[in-house]
Design a protein around this nucleic acid. Structure first.
Length: 832
RNA sequence: GCCGGAGUGGCGAAAUUGGCAAACGCGCCGCACUCAAAAUGCGGUGUCCGCAAGGGCCUGCGGGUUCGAGUCCCGCCUCCGGCACCA
């Protein structure tokens, strides 16, 4: 049966529309800097305007709004903004498919999604909305680009890059997942191309160090970042080529202690020195053939670690500087140009890859670490041990031998200690249209010249042919390409690439601080007040990508003297995915739940309640239509209760004066619930248990209502019902704001629920005079008793031993020991 | 292979510090209301033995520490995520 036909639902469509209108009219969530008042910057990752919100969005924004409203009620000045990550490929693809201009498509989508989000009733300050494809936004990004250029933090070079043949553009390393494009899943190929890079490697050490100083971040995200940065310590040294005084090969190793075991050395096939090592044309031909063979390999094939290692032996030989012996030189595909120096010393005794290669090519293997007695010698040994076969290092431990080997290299001027990072510079040039233009020109006379600051923004031209085939569409726009050289005034050509859209998302949180500011990226005072973001919320898929870039960009702005903070995000909440029927929601699987449908059928309050109740935020959320029914039922139950008891609660004057025992017990539960809900929100964001505590209170409210019909004074009953109901509304407000605001008003309040202070548990009401003590015999529960809170241990012990439920279990046995845990339990340990 | 996380009822999940395992919700069963249904309300619901009272067994597996272990320690297994020929 269609749910919107049900007459028994509370009238959520009217209520939700009404309060959304009232909040907007009152400008209730509009904020300004208020020095001296504690601030709270609550931020959810802004969406790409794909056209429609999905359940993942509902989940993040429900979490963010709960925190924002909660912090409001706790007296914080809360910045809670929303905007659009508006540049990107889908807009261009839509243009190719439907002939709609990317700008038109994007702005229409934004309008749709804004309407959808507003229907969720989230407490955004919509006056701060930011759209990244607006020239007033990307202007500042272009300015910072020029500043980075001046500092050498942005540079241009020709390099081998990841190329997505489907998106027709370059991808950064972070945007390749297992050899495939992060966006379209196509297999990535390698291309040599000119492009711009941001020098994120300059910040590798700092980005790594701060991973230890972000206690508000989930460990798994920090681990992924540490792995990605990939620091390793070792040595770099010059490997001499036999008979070639003019030629050495730079080598990076993390195991300088094993140098005496170097029985051959390997260069990456594309290593630039290889050309100089070739003995004659014949060998040059062999090298080219080998390179071509390797180049044919797809990234996927190269990733397979378990196949035979192919190599090409060169006629040139090297000299192991430690042993003085000549060793063979190879090209092999297992050595990558992109890491270290692109050349390795091979120590088959202590490195498994070298071992495999040595076995395949019949090369000698020398052990330089003493093996354990039962060692089978069928693989490389990477464990600990004493150095052997290593000349002056013999007898040392590995760590000490590393230091001595480096000292030896330094003393001879051959090398030094070296730290290497896996992190590569961030390639930001994209050969696509819908992005921020790179503010640089090329002049025949002056070469590469940045645009003058007063000419910014370099506006993305509107009239352009987008075919999706080959090269940047901007290159075809004569009016854009042909420009004046800012230096000599002669003719110059603009750079026709656009910036990676991850550049826009690296600083949008700063723009929110002063979104209309015209004299710079952000107003310094506003940023000083609001930054850093106190709580950032978003999907785990950005653990490395966006979160690493934003951290880097923040540090760059700090070093440009624009910002005081070292890190943008104080705390991070990585919420799980929304799953249905065991799979991520997707159109292809046909398991998508449309938030619009859901809100139309149940209301935003129910959608929000369910998505917060079904699982703790960091876990995947299993969508369940029956569970949504349950959430709806719960809100209806509260609605009915308030409306059927309005008269009685309205008659209550003053605070609840609980005189009777049941009254005091009920009041204690009200205050225990306040305590529990506050703890669950503050301690670990476990909103699911916070909500279950409110559900328990509502259940108890119904029980109390029935039980107190006879025998309890009417004023006491009415006052307690009112106190309980008001507590429920306050605690549930941040979860389901419309219904709680409506019922709050129905109870006679004239001011908004969200201007009320968050309730605080009253210690007097929490106090209890008796506690239940569990009685165990040999660890098994056999009875229970009620004891005064302050009853002495000896007394409880006596009562336990004398208890009628306990005594049969002691028959024929001796009491060996009695453990009394005050306020909790007694365990009687027996013997015999 | 390395790093990180997780295994608890039919299902989603709870369990502050080592102290009553399964709160809350879903589903299911029963009852009330109803001509009937829906909705709503009330009660029950880990599992095995038992008519019942009651008792045994239960947190992936095997050990250990402890009066007491879902929780701590040791050794395994499985699943999920990340990185991966990184020298």
């Amino acid at each position: 049966m269609a749910l919107d036909e049900r007459p028994d639902r509370y009238p959520f469509p009217e209520i939700e529309a009404k309060w959304q209108r009232v909040w907007a009219e009152r400008e209730q969530f509009k904020v300004t800097e208020q020095p001296g008042r504690p601030k709270y910057y609550c931020l959810e990752m802004f969406p790409y305007p794909s056209g429609r919100i999905h359940m993942g969005h509902v989940r993040v924004y429900a979490i963010g709004d709960l925190l924002a409203r909660y912090k409001w009620m706790r007296g914080f000045n809360v910045l809670h903004p929303m905007g659009w990550d508006a540049f990107g490929l889908p807009a261009e693809n839509a243009a190719i498919d439907n002939g709609v201009h990317p700008a038109v498509w994007t702005y229409e989508n934004i309008d749709n999604m804004r309407t959808q989000l507003k229907r969720m009733g989230i407490s955004y300050d919509w006056d701060r909305e930011v759209t990244t494809c607006d020239p007033a936004y990307y202007k500042w990004e272009q300015l910072i680009f020029i500043r980075m250029l001046e500092r050498g933090l942005a540079y241009r070079r020709r390099s081998r890059v990841n190329w997505c043949p489907s998106c027709q553009t370059v991808l950064a390393n972070e945007q390749v997942e297992a050899g495939r494009c992060w966006r379209c899943d196509s297999e990535v190929t390698i291309r040599e191309i000119d492009g711009w890079f941001f020098k994120i490697t300059e910040y590798a050490q700092e980005l790594l160090d701060w991973c230890d100083r972000l206690p508000g971040w989930p460990e798994r995200v920090l681990t992924m970042q540490r792995n990605w940065i990939g620091r390793s310590e070792g040595a770099e040294f010059a490997l001499p080529v036999a008979g070639r005084a003019d030629l050495t090969i730079p080598i990076f190793t993390t195991r300088p202690d094993t140098s005496f075991g170097m029985t051959y050395a390997v260069l990456a096939p594309e290593h630039p020195l290889v050309d100089r090592l070739a003995a004659d044309d014949e060998e040059r031909r062999l090298i080219e053939a080998f390179r071509a063979e390797v180049a044919r390999e797809t990234e996927i094939e190269r990733l397979a670690t378990d196949r035979p290692k192919r190599g090409l032996r060169l006629t040139a030989r090297a000299v192991n500087p430690f042993t003085g012996r000549e060793i063979p030189l190879f090209l092999a595909e297992y050595v990558l140009m992109g890491y270290g120096t692109g050349a390795i010393m091979a120590v088959p005794g202590e490195d498994q890859r070298d071992w495999d290669f040595a076995k395949a090519h019949g090369l000698p293997i020398v052990a330089t670490v003493k093996r354990p007695a039962d060692w089978k010698d069928d693989q490389a040994y990477t464990g600990d041990g004493v150095k052997i076969n290593s000349g002056f290092l013999d007898g040392l431990g590995i760590e000490e031998a590393k230091r001595k080997a480096i000292d030896w290299l330094v003393a001879r001027g051959l090398g030094q200690a070296k730290i290497n990072f896996r992190l590569r510079d961030w390639g930001i040039s994209r050969q696509r249209y819908w992005g921020a233009p790179i503010p640089v020109l090329y002049c025949d006379k002056d070469g590469m010249v940045p645009e003058r600051e007063e000419n910014l923004p370099v506006v993305l031209p509107r009239d352009v042919q987008i075919s999706g085939k080959g090269g940047s569409p901007l290159a075809e726009v004569a009016g854009f390409v042909n420009a004046t050289c800012p230096k000599c005034g002669g003719r110059a050509r603009r750079d026709t690439d656009t910036m990676d859209t991850f550049v826009e998302s690296s600083w949008y949180f700063l723009r929110y601080c002063s979104p209309a500011y015209e004299r710079g990226m952000f107003e310094p005072g506003a940023a000083a007040y609001w930054m850093p973001v106190d709580q950032y919320i978003g999907g785990i898929e950005h653990a490395v990508l966006h979160l690493l870039y934003a951290r880097f960009y923040t540090k760059v702005l700090r070093d440009l003297g624009m910002l005081k903070v070292d890190e943008p995000f104080q705390a991070l909440l990585s919420q799980g995915m929304v799953i249905k029927d065991g799979a991520k929601m997707s159109k292809s699987k046909g398991n998508v739940v449309d938030p619009d449908d859901l809100i139309r059928r149940y209301g935003a309050d129910t959608a929000r309640l369910f998505s917060l109740f079904a699982a703790p935020p960091e876990k995947d959320l299993d969508w369940n239509d029956r569970g949504v029914e349950g959430a709806s039922r719960f809100l209806n139950r509260i609605w009915r209760f308030v409306h059927t008891h309005l008269g009685e609660m309205g008659a209550a004057a003053g605070p609840a004066d609980a005189r009777s025992d049941p009254g005091r017990a009920f009041r204690r539960l009200i205050h225990e619930t306040i305590q529990k809900v506050t703890h669950d929100i503050e301690h670990d964001f476990h909103f699911n248990t916070a909500i279950s505590a409110v559900m328990e209170l509502v259940n108890a409210l119904h029980d109390f209502e029935r039980a107190s019909l006879d025998g309890m004074a009417r004023p006491e009953r009415g006052a307690l019902l009112r106190e309980a109901v008001e507590t429920v509304l306050l605690l549930l407000g941040p979860v389901s704001p419309h219904i709680t605001e409506e019922l709050w008003a129905a109870l006679g309040h004239r001011e908004s629920l969200f201007t009320r202070a968050w309730p605080v548990a009253d210690p007097g009401s929490l106090a209890r005079d008796a506690v239940e003590i569990v009685l165990q015999v040999d660890g098994r529960v056999r009875g229970r008793l009620s004891a005064a809170v302050d009853a002495p241990e000896a007394e409880i012990r006596e009562q336990a031993l004398a208890d009628s439920k306990v005594r049969p279990w002691l028959d024929g046995r001796q009491v060996a020991r009695v453990v009394v845990v005050p306020g909790r339990l007694v365990n009687i340990v027996t013997r015999g």
